[in-house]
């Protein structure tokens, strides 16, 4: 080994005066500098280029799919009577876009009191592009980063306390959702992804109030999400939940199935049994 390195250094030493030596060193130095630059600051360079193309892609998607309600430049459209046709999206942030479009609420199928959850129209790349475009209009909450390990390490008990204090008034004690005035409703929280739950708390979509990170900290939000996921994964040891919507479904079940079967047994008990016209002894 030592022999080999000594050999190479000896050879380099003899060739250092060659006429190719200077250009070779220059090329090597340039490559090293370029390589270092790529290795140390690639993110900024590529992200900036990506961001610009994402925003451009988002803008073109926006103008096709969203501008008829939200305006050509997402400035919102006000009706003649001064009501909002579609609100301004300046400052709502990428998190709001990711929630509204990612859960299929936007684009709305028709105007109404509330956009309902449905199958998403755009794929995640397109949603990210739309989000990048809306984020570029004004600062707003970015798409949160929540991983499975965040949920696994969260405090489920505390999440339950926060959930019961802040969420159950509208979303029901088991997260089954509930009715709001004027034909609106608080949707069920079952089967909603952790990211979308987080975004809903962060942005306050539609009638839902905002639960900003300043008061309900990111860890509190993760605790709530972990509680909901735990709740969803726990088998119902108490029997059929009947949708966990409380006394209405339970009462209907008791009246129809419970009392119904008792009435059925009562009828069986008291109905007159089959009679035969044969007399004893003339059996066939």
């Amino acid at each position: 080994m030592r022999l080999i390195t000594r050999k190479i250094s000896a050879r380099l030493s003899t060739r250092r005066r060659s006429r190719y030596a200077a250009p070779a060193v220059l090329v090597a130095a340039l490559l090293a500098a370029g390589g270092l630059y790529v290795a140390l600051s690639p993110a900024d360079a590529t992200n900036k280029a990506d961001d610009a193309s994402m925003i451009a892609k988002g803008r073109s998607l926006f103008q096709v799919g969203c501008s008829s309600c939200h305006g050509q430049n997402a400035e919102g459209i006000v009706t003649k009577r001064g009501k909002q046709y579609g609100p301004s999206l300046v400052g709502v942030g990428a998190a709001a876009v990711d929630f509204q479009v990612g859960t299929g609420r936007m684009p709305m199928a028709q105007p109404g009191v509330q956009a309902a959850r449905k199958k998403p129209v755009y794929n995640q790349d397109e949603i990210d592009a739309l989000g990048a475009y809306v984020q570029s209009l004004g600062p707003g909450p970015a798409v949160p980063d929540i991983t499975q390990s965040d949920i696994d390490n969260a405090d489920v008990v505390k999440g339950g306390q926060f959930f019961r204090t802040n969420c159950t008034a509208c979303h029901n004690f088991a997260g089954s959702g509930g009715a709001l005035p004027g034909g609106k409703h608080a949707p069920s929280l079952r089967g909603v992804s952790a990211k979308h739950l987080y975004e809903a708390m962060l942005t306050g979509p539609q009638q839902m109030p905002v639960f900003s990170d300043g008061v309900l900290s990111p860890q509190d939000k993760k605790d709530i999400i972990a509680y909901l996921k735990k709740n969803e994964a726990t088998p119902s040891y108490g029997g059929f939940t009947l949708g966990s919507i409380g006394p209405v479904s339970e009462g209907l079940f008791a009246w129809i199935v419970g009392i119904g079967s008792l009435v059925g047994i009562g009828i069986w008990l008291t109905s007159s049994s089959t009679r035969s016209t044969k007399k004893k002894g003339d059996a066939a």
Binding site: K158, Q161, F162, T165, N166, G204, P209, V210, F211, S212, G214, V215, L216, S217, D220
Partner: peptide, 17 residues
């Protein structure tokens, strides 16, 4: 639940605590 103190700047428009 957690007794966190609240500054006005922590709350956004549309926020409920």
């Amino acid at each position: 639940v957690d007794g966190a103190r609240i500054r006005p700047s922590d709350m956004q428009i549309g926020q409920l605590v």
